[in-house]
Amino acid sequence: MVASSSNMIEVEVAFALPERQCIVPLRVAGGTTAREAVEIAGLEAKFPEVSPAVFQEADLGIFGKRLRDPDEQPLKAGDRVEVYRPLELDPKAARAQRAAREKR
């Protein structure tokens, strides 16, 4: 199905690494889901050092609010889809490590 221009909405897809970030503006058909927008954004090409699986499986949010089902969440005009990186260190483990260092 080809969407008419009146059915198109503007959204953004954002992803960041500690050293750089990228926000990709998109014009997509109404009804496009958050996960579909991430796929359309082509982040794999912009971040070749990141496994494509990260973008396919990552938790997603809209303006800082995590989505429960990004594969079903239709976007609204102006939404910014955020791709969340997996945690490198569990927050509880990080606190335990800091506490152990402070005891020394």
Rank of each mutant, 00 (worst) to 15 (best):
V24I: 07
P18N: 00
Y84C: 00
R20K: 04
R27Y: 11
R85G: 01
C22R: 09
L43P: 00
D71T: 09
V50I: 14
A45L: 13
A77Y: 11
P86E: 01
L67E: 04
T32V: 13
L17Y: 00
E12V: 03
V11D: 03
A34H: 09
E57M: 05
E82F: 13
V13G: 06
A29E: 11
A53Y: 02
L87D: 00
A34G: 03
E10D: 15
A100R: 12
V13Y: 10
Q73R: 15
A45M: 13
G78T: 06
L87F: 01
E88A: 05
R35E: 06
F63V: 05
V2Q: 15
P18V: 00
L60G: 03
K46P: 01
A58H: 02
R98L: 10
R68V: 04
E12R: 13
V83F: 02
R35S: 11
L75T: 07
E102A: 15
A37P: 03
R20V: 00
G64W: 14
V38A: 08
A96I: 04
T33M: 12
E36T: 11
E10Q: 12
T33D: 05
A93F: 11
E12M: 12
D69V: 06
E88L: 10
E88K: 06
D79R: 04
A94N: 02
L87S: 03
A16I: 00
E49A: 11
R80Y: 05
G31H: 05
E39Y: 10
E36Y: 09
P48I: 04
K65R: 13
G64L: 12
R27G: 07
S5H: 13
T32L: 11
A34P: 01
L17Q: 01
P18S: 02
Y84G: 00
L87M: 06
E88V: 03
R68F: 12
A3W: 09
G64E: 04
A99S: 13
E72N: 12
C22F: 09
M1K: 11
P25Q: 10
R80G: 06
V13F: 10
F55K: 04
P70M: 07
R85K: 10
F55H: 08
E88D: 11
A34K: 07
E12H: 15
R104S: 12
Q73W: 07
V50T: 08
P86R: 00
P48C: 02
L17P: 00
T32C: 15
A77M: 11
Q56S: 07
A77G: 14
A34F: 13
R101C: 09
A96Q: 14
F15G: 00
Q73G: 06
Y84H: 00
V2D: 14
I9H: 06
E44I: 04
P18E: 01
L67Y: 04
R104L: 14
P25A: 11
P86D: 03
K76I: 14
V38R: 08
V28G: 06
A37Q: 10
V38N: 06
S5C: 08
T33E: 08
G42I: 02
A93Q: 09
R35G: 02
A58S: 14
G30A: 15
A45W: 06
I40S: 05
S4V: 07
